[in-house]
Every structure is written in C-alpha cells, then in structure tokens.
Amino acid sequence: MSVDYHWSDEDESWALYRLKVVKSYKGNLTSQFTFFTERNSGGFYMDGNGGGPDLDRDYLLFLTPQPFERGQPASAKGALWVNYNCGQSKVWNEVTAGEAAELALLSRHR
C-alpha cells in the first residue's frame, strides 16, 4: 500500500511498509499491517526495478514479531519482520506450483 524509507549516512537506513493481506496461510493477521526492515545485508526489500517501492506485486512473506530493542527507530515498534530473509519470502510469481500446494496443505493444519 505504501512505504516510508529512511536513508541515512549517520545511522541505520530502514524501510517501513504498510501492506494488506491477500491470503494468510497461518496466523491471525489483520487485513492491514506494517512490516519493518533494516536496509542492510539482512534486510528484505520490496523494491521495484528502479529502486523505488514495488507496490504492485504480491509477495509470500514469512513474518515474525520482533521485540523492540533500544536503538531501533520508533517506527519498528509493533511492526512485523521477515523471518529467514534468505529465500523463503519472495515475490509471489516466483513461488512454484509445488510450493503453493505445500502452503495450501500446511495451512489446513493451522
């Protein structure tokens, strides 16, 4: 839906995305939520080809709440984070038919 980028040469750069749920496979998300990511090697970015926000594509996100820690921006408080940044979460059109079938099967056992 929208994104707030914070670019900095002095402290951490980050992004706060405001997203809507298309389909939930597990958990009880509200229809809209915030997702926080630091702009570093451990971040998960939803950027388009030009580097701006990619607000027109669907994503498969494995999310987790994170405890708010000192030094984090206030925007991170209450936001969800991607769990396992390396490969599980991705653009929806990169999800294979086998992965989609497995998600559907697993979601029956919430």
Rank of each mutant, 00 (worst) to 15 (best):
L61V: 01
A79T: 08
L16Q: 07
H6M: 00
M1H: 09
C86N: 13
F68V: 09
N85R: 09
V82F: 00
A74H: 12
R57D: 15
L105Q: 14
F68K: 00
Y45A: 10
A97E: 14
N28Y: 06
W7T: 12
A15V: 15
L63A: 01
Y45D: 09
P53G: 05
A79Y: 02
G71R: 03
Y5I: 02
E10P: 06
L61D: 03
D58Q: 13
L19F: 02
D58V: 06
S41R: 12
E99G: 09
K20S: 14
L105N: 10
G71T: 07
V3G: 04
V95Q: 11
G87V: 12
E12F: 12
E99D: 11
K90A: 08
C86Y: 12
T64F: 02
R39T: 12
N83R: 14
S13R: 03
K23G: 01
D4Y: 08
E94P: 14
S13I: 03
G98K: 15
P67L: 05
T64I: 15
T30L: 11
L80Q: 01
P73C: 00
V91L: 14
W7Y: 13
V82M: 01
Q32K: 14
F62P: 00
E69C: 09
G42D: 13
D47L: 10
D47P: 00
F44W: 06
L106Y: 06
W7L: 14
Y25Q: 09
G98W: 03
W81N: 03
F62S: 08
A74M: 07
R57H: 15
H6A: 01
T96K: 04
P53S: 02
K20G: 09
Q88G: 07
M1P: 08
D58G: 01
T34A: 02
T34Y: 03
V82T: 04
V95A: 11
N83G: 07
N83A: 08
A15Q: 06
E12L: 09
G48W: 00
T30V: 00
N49T: 08
G98I: 12
L103Y: 09
D11A: 09
D4A: 12
V91C: 12
V91S: 11
L105D: 12
L106C: 08
L63M: 01
E102I: 04
F68R: 00
G48P: 14
N28G: 07
N85C: 04
S89F: 09
E12T: 12
P67T: 03
K20H: 13
Y5N: 04
S24L: 07
F62E: 08
V95W: 01
G71W: 02
G71H: 06
T64M: 10
G43N: 02
A79I: 11
L80F: 07
D54T: 06
G78T: 09
E102F: 04
F33H: 03
